[in-house]
Design a protein around this nucleic acid. Structure first.
Lengths: 232, 232
DNA sequence: ACCCCTTCTTGAACATGTTCAACAATCGCC
DNA sequence: GGCGATTGTTGAACATGTTCAAGAAGGGGT
């Protein structure tokens, strides 16, 4: 009845731990139900029942309902990376590369807008391991920042030497801002978010170019000093 | 045993609805317990018990536990306004006025950092009436924006005519950013947030001044157009 | 084959936010 | 002062995330 995930035992793929299959089953079931019913409307009991396991078993693999969200993040990050590849291959100028990668991120998230928005709040809690700034999510975060590093690496743009090393993380931060806007975006098809990207990228592009001007050097340095101070 | 809130009937103060007293009692009890135990550790049953009412009674006045947070917001806003008054009376230059108001906001919130951070996540959920962008909180939001309007009104700074009307809301948005940083700030006494304010204000000051330059006019206009587009 | 140890699984029990039908108190009006 | 309508109050019942003691399954050494 349900599209069964490819869970043939895959003898060649060494599922390290015994319960790896169960783990994936629970995860896939949860993802499906989240998409079908939304996050709040999906109970742990429903997940367990649909997956054919006991409730407690889900908690053996995932510390809490919130932890299931992390799976969503990780999955989205991988999809984002894949969706961005064509852009990185095609474009050479900084602006189009950045715009393409940002659009790719929203492309990936769009099918989940309804329910993703509902639970992105969990990410906002500082004490939560789900916060994009938390230690637990440093893996996916590094991968995301790396993606913006590639935006620069392949770009033909000339960038201020002092700004350069900070830029990937700053672009990632901008991406977080875009997502925050997207989450609140109620316009049909989230058109506004697309406009935000298309409007903001030229500004960022110009700003990055301007940062090399001698007259603006002090400002650039002041900004960078502040950022370095704030990141402990 | 508990410090009883001033709940003498206050015959002169016409408590419009009959249950106004009960409402305040529940609210004050909740605020006290939140401060004492934190948000998650304070159960609705505990609030009801300490206030000497039934659980259901709390739900008569506040739609949910989350709605009690709104009281905290409203209260904080009023305190912020009061704490900002001396600064507005004293300072005349734009920079010091802005810095003073931002610091005043953090001053007010500081005693609650421990638990405020825990529940600020609720504010991040777009569907929640607690979101600072939601219709329900438009009252407090307008009041907050108005406060930043006063930062400008009393200021001696010369400001671009086109930017001027948008600026209060932009400054409020910056304040939201400061709060977001504060929430995640783990440095002792949230020193980092203070540094953020002291570092960012001069930049904003300079930026506002620069916006009047003829050469930067196109950029200014581009930014303002984007903002106008995005606010529906 | 046997035994021990780790890994995995179970489902009932618990904690807590929320609802709701019933009841009580108060008010407006005659 | 009496009476219907509005407002306020109650606490048990419900829904759901989470825990945990018990046991099953499997692996490895002898």
């Amino acid at each position: 009845m349900t599209e069964q995930p490819a869970q043939t035992t895959t003898a060649g793929d060494p599922a390290t731990a015994r319960g790896e299959q169960t783990r994936q089953l629970i995860r896939d079931t949860a993802m499906r139900l989240f998409r079908e019913r939304g996050y709040a409307q999906t109970t742990m009991r429903a997940i367990a029942q649909e997956a054919g396991v006991a409730v407690g078993n889900a908690y053996y693999y995932f510390g809490s309902k919130d932890h299931l969200i992390q799976e969503f993040y990780a999955q989205s990050q991988v999809e984002h990376r894949a969706a961005a590849q064509p852009v990185l291959d095609r474009e050479e100028a900084f602006g189009p590369r950045l715009a393409g990668v940002l659009h790719a991120g929203i492309d990936v998230l769009t099918p989940s807008h309804g329910f993703a928005a509902t639970f992105f709040k969990t990410a906002a809690e500082p004490t939560s391991p789900l916060s994009p700034f938390s230690a637990e999510s440093s893996g996916p975060r590094q991968a995301a920042i790396e993606l913006f590093g590639e935006v620069l690496t392949g770009s033909t743009a000339k960038i201020d030497a002092e700004l350069r090393p900070q830029l990937p993380e700053l672009l990632w931060l901008a991406y977080m801002g875009v997502i925050l806007y997207w989450v609140h975006d109620r316009s049909p098809g989230q058109t506004k978010t697309r406009q935000l990207i298309d409007g903001a990228v030229p500004l960022i592009d110009r700003l990055v170019a301007l940062s090399r001007l001698r007259v603006l050097r002090p400002v650039t340095r002041q900004v960078l000093d502040l950022i370095r101070t704030l990141r402990h």
